[in-house]
Amino acid sequence: EFSMMFKHFDKDKSGRLNHQEFKSCLRSLGYDLPMVEEGEPDPEFEAILDTVDPNRDGHVSLQEYMAFMISRE
């Protein structure tokens, strides 16, 4: 189920989600993330990124995504 969600939000089929795609994916899974303006701080989402994209390369791989989802179950 999680990998299907990942593929759905991987719009460019790159095998990874940019942070915006990842945020959309989390919202569709029921995460209550506040709407913030582009460039505004988003501490809740930043905290999630610290876990799922610790190297802050700007992308979430399928492996990082799956590890995050399994840790939340």
Rank of each mutant, 00 (worst) to 15 (best):
K13H: 10
D12V: 04
E46R: 04
L62K: 12
L49D: 00
L49S: 00
M66W: 04
S3P: 12
G30H: 06
S61G: 14
V60K: 01
M4V: 10
L26C: 03
F45M: 06
V36Q: 12
Y65S: 06
H19N: 02
D53S: 03
M69N: 07
H59I: 09
N55V: 07
F45H: 00
E37T: 12
E40I: 12
A47M: 13
G58A: 01
G30R: 04
L62W: 12
G58K: 02
F68M: 06
G30C: 05
A47I: 05
E38Y: 08
P54R: 09
E38S: 12
E37Q: 14
D57T: 15
L17Q: 04
V60S: 00
S61W: 07
H19D: 00
F68K: 05
K13R: 13
K13P: 02
R56G: 06
R27L: 13
M69H: 05
R56Y: 01
F22M: 02
E73Q: 11
D53W: 00
D57R: 14
M5L: 07
C25W: 03
F22Q: 03
P41E: 13
L29R: 03
E64Q: 14
E44W: 08
R27I: 14
A67F: 06
F45N: 01
L49M: 04
G30P: 02
S28L: 10
S24F: 08
E46M: 06
K13Y: 15
P54T: 06
R27T: 11
V36M: 11
P54Q: 07
L26G: 00
L29H: 05
P54H: 07
F68V: 03
H8N: 14
L33W: 08
T51E: 15
G39E: 09
L62H: 13
S24Y: 06
F2G: 10
E64Y: 03
P54E: 05
N18Q: 03
L62Y: 15
D42F: 04
A67R: 14
D53N: 04
F2Q: 14
E44G: 10
S61V: 06
H59T: 13
Y65F: 15
G58R: 01
S14F: 03
V36I: 13
Y31R: 04
R16P: 11
L17M: 05
